[in-house]
Structure formats: structure tokens, C-alpha cells
Design a protein around this nucleic acid. Sequence first.
DNA 1: CCTACCGATCGGTAGG
DNA 2: CCTACCGATCGGTAGG
Lengths: 193, 193
Amino acid sequence: MAKKVKNNKRQLILDEAAKLFKAKGFGGTSMRDLGAQVGMEAASMYNHINSKDEILEIICFHVSDTYISQLAQIEQTQASYVDKIKALIHLHIRLMIEDGAAVSVANNDWKYLTADKLEAFKQARKNYEKGFAALIEQGIAAGELQPVNTSVALFTILSAVRWVELWYRPGRGITAEELEENIMTLLLNGLAK
Amino acid sequence: MAKKVKNNKRQLILDEAAKLFKAKGFGGTSMRDLGAQVGMEAASMYNHINSKDEILEIICFHVSDTYISQLAQIEQTQASYVDKIKALIHLHIRLMIEDGAAVSVANNDWKYLTADKLEAFKQARKNYEKGFAALIEQGIAAGELQPVNTSVALFTILSAVRWVELWYRPGRGITAEELEENIMTLLLNGLAK
DNA sequence: CCTACCGATCGGTAGG
DNA sequence: CCTACCGATCGGTAGG
């Protein structure tokens, strides 16, 4: 029971930290800012977390773990390469909408991870990118996709979904489904007629 | 003569600041870090610039001014809408390659501008986006482009070119021209066959 | 979970 | 352009 309460507070700290890090950056967010948001003195939060660095760590690896496990699942399906890539785009958009603050932090503030965690994170991201790129490459080889440069295609896709968080606001003219449909059309069929 | 030297130092400070802000963020870069990079004590730099905030200001508005004046030029040409949009994509990629540090700072650290400059910057960006969106809208109306959501198309394009800076390294497998060709193909014709 | 406080570092100024 | 320094704020600890 005490454990439950402790975990709730801990999760609250992590959630509020993700929002603040997204809004003001890791360096721009002080433990006193975070305490004010959580409703606690800065010093008190150290009963729930070990350090400011640890907060960033937990957020970043939570996100990268999610992407990596989902990629593994998608790789195992029997779908076409086009559909596998669509599933990955869908995953990115969905995570952006559902857990945008954490995803933003993992995208922008990962560089402030401490040395060893930084290496681990970069490696995890590289592995994810390699897996994604392999699907594109195989899709081209299978004749499903245009013969573009694989890296360019990979990063164009990753970038295109990345900024959903910055300008998409639910209930402002376009639904999540319409958003996804439009992005899919653009990436797969292009803007020109 | 004395003025010339002063301006050179000032420009050096601005250039090194852009690199450091890009690498470590505005908040993560101290005036002492910057001084070390420039070859000066932190205090000495205040003979060339007024404040750390001013450095960020100059970098951000230099970039937004460039985009806005180039957009105005492109708008006045007689080219088709597709070609105008291609010209804008070309502009973004070229600026990313030529002045990537400053562009990155304007993209990521603008939020640390002081209140009034922040408003001005957001307004400038909004104006640019409106002008870009208008070209897409007119291109759709003219039947040159697919009838996708204009905002989605705009931000997908802006995002897709934005991350060139993060992964493109000259001389590593692909030239700037090939990069541009590939991005154009993807955005205009799509990935699917 | 709070008060009180630590050493370090910050942006910036004074004075030369 | 440097030395010396300011008040403020930082992440974190001690002790209760």
C-alpha cells in the first residue's frame, strides 16, 4: 500500500517532468520548477527519485524500449513491406498523440543523458533505425517501393511524423485519423498529381 | 579599422555560439564555455555583445529574415506552383547545409527568446508558414497538387527538410544534389510504386 | 515531506 | 581584454 502511493508520486514526478522538459528543455527546468508543478519541495522529490539525470534516463529509455519492442512485433507479421511501413508510421503518430511529452523529450533532450546512458541510448536508436531501414530496403528489392536512397527515405519518414506533436491539437479542425490518412498519402503517394 | 576588428570578433562569437547552442542547447551553454571556444574570458565578450539573450536573438532573426525575404522573391516569380514549392524545398535544404548551426538554433532554441522578441519571432514564423501554405493551397486549386490537407502538407514538408542537419554529412555516401533529388522525389511522388 | 543549508556555477559588472 | 567579484540560482544532502 505504501509502495503503491510511492509509485504514484514517482509516476506523477516523471509525467510532470516530461511536460516541463518538453516546454523548457532539460537544462531550462529546475528541480524547484518541477517541485512546484508536482506540489512538493524540490528536496522532497529525492525520496521518490535519485537524481534529475535519472528522470531524463527513465523517460528516454521508456520511449526507446517502446519503439524497439513494437518494431520487433511488426517485423514478425506476414504483411507486405508497404503495410509494415504503414504500421510503423501509424505507431509513431499514435505515440506522438498519446505520449507526446515523453516522445519529445526522447527526441530532443536525449543528448543530456550522462555518458554511459548516452551511449546506450544512441545504440538503441541506431538499432531501431537499422531495422526500419531494412524494411524499406526489402520493400524496394521486392518492387513495392520506388528505388530511392534508403537513408533519405528513412529520415524523411521519421522527420515527417516527428513534428505532429508541435502543431497537432486534437479538436482543432482535424481528427487523429484524418491526420494519419493525410500523412500516409503524402509519404506514400506524394504531393504532386 | 578598429570597427572592422570588432565586427570580426563579434561575428566569431555569434558563429561559435550557434555551434555550441546547437550542440548543447542555449541553457546548456555558459558564457564561459563560449569564451573558451572563442579564445577570450567570458567577461571580455561583453565588449562585443550586450548579453547572452542578444546572441540568441541575432541568430534567430537572421535565420527568419532570410526565409522571409527568399519566400517573397519566390512568390514573385512566374513559375508553376509545383516549381515554387520545389524552390522553397531547395532553399530549406541549402540553408541547412550552408548554415546548419544557425538554422538548428532558430528551430530549437527560439523558445528561450525573451518575451517581446519571442512574440516577434513567433509572428514572423507564422507569416512565413502562411505564405508557404498559400502556395500549396493555390497549387491544389490549380489542379497541380493532390487535394491533401494544406497544414499537413506544409508541416510534413517543413519537417522532412528540417532534419537534414542531424544526419547529413557531406562526403558520406551521398552528395547535396543527390540528397535534394531524393527528398524532392519522396515529397512530390511518394515512396510507393 | 519540510527546513536549512552546502559548494558550484551562472550571467553580468566594476575597474583598470 | 583581464582580474576580481556580485547576487542569484542550481542539484543535492543532512537531519528531523
